[in-house]
């Protein structure tokens, strides 16, 4: 099964994108597989509303381990199952908590084995340098790393917010040569293009 990993800095909306994108693809009841830092798997079922309230938070580093779900992507006349993996957010510096550092290391291992990488950047905070989710050195490094892979796309998220349009243009300028799609994980906008991209690369 092909693996599609969602990565990006902390607080850019990776988990919300996972839940809403999965819902967009027709998932009603989420069978979430949690892989904790000791590589142990925990399975649990949850519906999308509860998933958002339980897993999504405005505080950075809400996601502290890898969580994955299986979804069907329509390809041609049939469907293909892929594994959608949500990861812990990156930061530019060294995080003081060892648990987060472990989770980041786990993320790095996972993206090296992924077939498709969805790199989320917060378009609304591109010009706010001091926020944890704003565009940083790690984003450039991710782009360079992921270019070695075939299926790499940058998702400029939070397009519904003020200033995101300007941020999107800046992202386009900074990461020219890469495919960049504007999305709003909250309002499920731009998901069609993401679906087409994923279907094309599996």
């Amino acid at each position: 099964m092909k693996r599609c990993t969602i990565i990006g800095k902390t607080n850019v909306g990776k988990t919300l994108f996972l839940i809403n994108f999965a819902e967009y693809l027709g998932v009603k009841l989420f069978n979430i597989e949690l892989i904790n830092k000791d590589s142990k798997k925990i399975l649990y079922k949850i519906n999308s509303k509860n998933a958002i309230s339980r897993l999504v938070n405005e505080q950075p580093h809400k996601t502290r381990c890898v969580q994955a779900i299986e979804v069907n992507i329509p390809v041609g006349k049939g469907k293909k199952k892929i594994r959608l993996i949500d990861t812990t957010g990156f930061i530019d510096g060294i995080h003081p908590e060892v648990e987060i550092r472990k989770a980041i290391s786990q993320t790095l291992t996972i993206i090296r084995d992924s077939d498709i990488i969805l790199h989320i950047i917060d378009a609304s905070t591109v010009y706010h340098k001091d926020l944890p989710s704003s565009l940083g050195e790690v984003d450039y490094q991710i782009a360079q790393f992921a270019q070695l892979k075939r299926g790499y796309v940058i998702l400029a998220n939070k397009m519904d917010l003020l200033g995101a349009e300007k941020g999107f243009l800046k992202i386009k300028e900074e990461f020219s040569g890469n495919l960049i799609l504007p999305v709003s994980a909250l309002y499920k906008r731009g998901f069609k293009e993401v679906k087409i991209f994923v279907a094309h690369n599996i």
């Binding site: 990156f90 930061i91 995080h95 472990k102 980041i104 090296r112 490094q141 360079q144 790393f145 070695l148």
Partner: peptide, 30 residues
């Protein structure tokens, strides 16, 4: 890569530096 991950967990390197090292290894392999 195991060494890189260990260094990352111990807080010796930042994720950016870890990624740089991974890029080096992967492009060499490729």
């Amino acid at each position: 890569s195991i060494q890189i991950n260990e260094m990352l967990v111990r807080g010796m390197i930042t994720p950016v530096e870890a990624l740089t090292l991974f890029i080096e290894i992967d492009s060499q392999k490729k």
